[in-house]
Design a protein around this nucleic acid. Structure first.
Lengths: 144, 144
DNA sequence: TATCATTTTGAGACAGTTTATCAATTTCAA
DNA sequence: TTGAAATTGATAAACTGTCTCAAAATGATA
């Protein structure tokens, strides 16, 4: 594993420690590959990793990606019939405009919205860890 | 069918007419039941309607809810492993603060955020139909 | 109102995605 | 090094949603 993802590796180890879970070769491998992506499906990751490790099971990919979600490293997003796992460390790209006509997805970020979210949270006594904002509608092409 | 949903019934008939589709007993029944909900899954609707019409098929529910989406009466959203069909006529507030500690959910609305959402959408050529905003974190009690 | 081409339905088969099972293997604290 | 506990890989199973197709219903037309 490259030493570029030390922080995330640290976060994973912390989560594992807290929950009596173990650090395995597979978990390291999958984390390393995952962090290179902005978002990916389990199936895509399975095929990608099959090149370097043909015996890595699909179930392990799913289990591990869900583990990353628990650890706060990933965020699952259900789209169509598949689940996409977002890389949380890619900050500022969690928000999506989704066209219900052609399924196109546009990513955006808006600091003002984020600030207002914090404000709402504070007013209600919450401390935000992550968020999810999805706007559904029609893109200019599909509107016609 | 109650005459409270005349407008939606009208919209459905218009859509049917435009696409050489037919108005059936099932479509009326499902529309009537659907309009009483804010959002519902096909499965839930299947069980609900089974009481009054045991022979209504699940496939028909799916087909009809998708038809409602085409007609602009419903909007499908993928939630967890299931698809929820939102009743578009219920312009409700779908924004939530979710405590990852105790699972408490606080609903909120913020006009300023909604306005900014519109702004982002417009800037990208989108017309928003619905949205989903979820803030995940810890409530004041769980933070300690 | 009767006719009939077209659409719709119901039931179950089917397909794609994700989870459960379980024997064998690996991890890690002692 | 040992051994209890967790994890893995392979595959079965579950789940959601769509497809198929014969039978039934719809609605335009006469």
């Amino acid at each position: 594993m490259a030493n570029t993802h030390v922080k995330e590796m640290q976060a994973l180890k912390e989560h594992l420690g807290k929950h009596q879970l173990k650090l395995t070769r597979q978990r390291e491998l999958i984390l390393s590959a995952f962090l290179r992506q902005e978002h990916i499906t389990a199936e895509a990751m399975y095929h990608q990793l099959a090149k370097s490790d043909p015996h890595l099971g699909l179930a392990t990919i799913y289990r591990t990606l869900n583990l990353f979600c628990d650890a706060g490293l990933a965020q699952a997003r259900h789209f169509g019939s598949q689940t996409k796992y977002d890389n949380v460390s890619h900050k500022g790209h969690h928000d999506h405009l989704i066209c219900t006509g052609c399924e196109k997805i546009v990513e955006f970020e808006n600091e003002e919205i984020e600030r207002l979210q914090e404000e709402v949270a504070t007013r209600n006594g919450f401390t935000i860890k992550t968020h999810r904002l999805e706007l559904y509608g029609l893109c200019s092409r599909c509107r016609h």
